[in-house]
Design a protein around this nucleic acid. Sequence first.
DNA 1: TTCAGTTTAGTTTTT
DNA 2: CTAAACTGAA
Length: 748
Amino acid sequence: MLHSDQYNYLQGLNKQQRIAVETLDGPVLVLSGAGTGKTRVLTTRIAHLLVTGKSKPWNIMAVTFTNKAAREMKERVGRIIGPSSEQVLMGTFHSLGARMLRQHCELIGLKSNFTIIDVEDQVKLLKQIISAKNVDDKRWPAKFFLNIISSWKDKGLTPSKITDKHIFQYSNGLIKDIYIEYQERLLKSNCVDFGDLLVHPLELLRMNSDVLSKWQSKITHILIDEYQDTNTAQYLWIRLLCSKHNNICCVGDDDQSIYGWRGAEVKNILNFSNDFENSKVIRLEQNYRSTNKILDVANCLIKNNTNRLGKDLWTENNSDQDVEIFNSYDSSDEARKIGDIIEDKIRDKVHLTEIAVLVRTFSLLRAIEERFISIGLPYRVIGTKFYDRQEIRDAIAYVRVLCNPLDDLAFERIINTPRRGIGPTTIKKLSEYGRQNDMQLFHSAENIVNSEIFNNRTVEKIAQFINQIKKWKHLKNEKKPMDILDQVLEESTYYEMWENEKSEEAETRINNLKELLEVISEFDTLEGFLQHVSLMTDNDVGNELGEVTLMTLHAAKGSEYQVIFLPGWEDGLFPSFRSLEEGGEDGLEEERRLAYVGITRAKKELFLSYASNRRINGIWMSSLPSRFLKELPKDIANKIEANDYSAYSLYDENVSYDYTQKFKNQGYGPGWKRMSELKINNVKDKNLSQLPKNYENNFQINNFIKGDRVFHVKFGMGNVININDDKLDIKFDNAGHKKIQANFVEKQ
DNA sequence: TTCAGTTTAGTTTTT
DNA sequence: CTAAACTGAA
């Protein structure tokens, strides 16, 4: 038997890390704070599993949340153990789910070439369903239904599992009908959404014991990164998979849980020890990333959260470089100051790749980008939605139709793009025909063309289009994906369409298409390309050129930089008032964790900043400094008072941090107008007559009285203890005390 | 059916 | 302020 000291990859691990790596049997939870070497533990552990012979590569499954993390893990495992790492199942929950689903798709009723649709298509599909049901989509927007359906999927609830309790507040069951039809339509189109990539595999395992036991035998060791971000569906899936061998290692940090809005359940990590019998918990608290000053700020802030396991990061890396805070008059002033500091850093020989600006919302980046462009500072934006651009989506829709002719959403997108004289009226006829004959659009079109019932110019145009598609489909066996797409865009006159538009914008669009051709050139099949684009949202291009990195705080998790800028620390913006409105105290804590994530990205220098005025959707608003600034160590926070442009003092006790007060009185924009009208007319809307009868019950904005027993879909049962216009203070039986919009709860 | 001009709605984070 | 939705004329 080898002594473990002989494994040289274990050298340099600290004691705790080493225990985490060497405890290979049974359930293990590694609570690892920011910068404590979590990825190193995970990758070394995989290596150790293989080297000790505990497991074979194909028996290990390692799950991450982002593609970036998956890529990094693959690379680092490969560096330790070489090419056999290729056989380890590594990927995001969604990509592993898709993989499992493609293997067993027929059990769900899908074909293996199913397409993965994104939010935009989800909304489009729901809009169609809603309008067919004569629901007023002004009052009940598709997005609203989508949110509910998605949250159900996050919990692993298929339509058949939706009980009266779930749908209680939503339109007397209509939401369930919509969910059922939504799933049917997806299935008919041979499509799945993101939620399905988790729910379908879960159902697969639940319903097919042979499939379950096959996978349970195959996977002997499971490793999960960012465990604090798992939702219920993911948890259940993992539980099923690991229940035979029970070798599961979860790595996470409850203080970095920032995806509650997406259904992540912090309780998964908080309950780990109860959940898995004989589990071991290992804490990593020595931080190797940041200076003591930065950690002080982080620890000081996060200790304001009540709902945490609790830990204190420490470091041996002492520094006299203070964390800086500065105030600006407005966003362009702030951008200018950031630019100036970066220019100083350049003089200090800090490499641009070591500098990042992290923001709460993308919109904050505009002013900063503007400034960087004008001073000629190179930068890159992570997470900019390349695949969301119109021309890219169009091109991908063509590919989707070639791969999956049942995909109505894609077909509808391209049937008249570029213009072929096939308008909404014709499409409506086609789908009508399709519904009668149980066909998807493509086949209806094909049939109409052949049936010779219709004989006019429109049919000729359809025929032409259908024949073109058929021709392109034959190319699949002959040409490379890149050449096919190029030919499709050429022959469909899609290029021509943009070329004829002599605007500068059209030129960028054509360049974007060229870029897409570059991407597709790396794939052997159109299907492989599709899978890539639908799951890969971060186009994380390399940074060889030396650029400053700009991204959201969410996107920043898992990364580190020498110098970090955190602009936009204004109340309402950060913490975001929407989070507070929706999530109450929990929402605030999640925002605070987000701040914590931002702070702990910094290795050496950290700059916090807030502006006194900011333009939000075209309207100038003055803002209060973020309440988080108040929570920082006094010696740092005090510095900013001297040159504060803000009308308010940070420590003025009279300043109200109740965001609802502040925003309620603004009363701008159509949304606000509608809301206030609603309140005045007590919801006597002109469109009401078009709604199904029972809808009226849901419009009672507020006839609650103190003491009312209410139900909320997320928080369950509770009692109203106070009323503030349309906001209710509710004490929930199991979810604590929250402020909720009246229309989100149902009187019992 | 198309196109241009007008109105209106939405304003967070991501797989 | 912007992107999407709508309207009306050709």
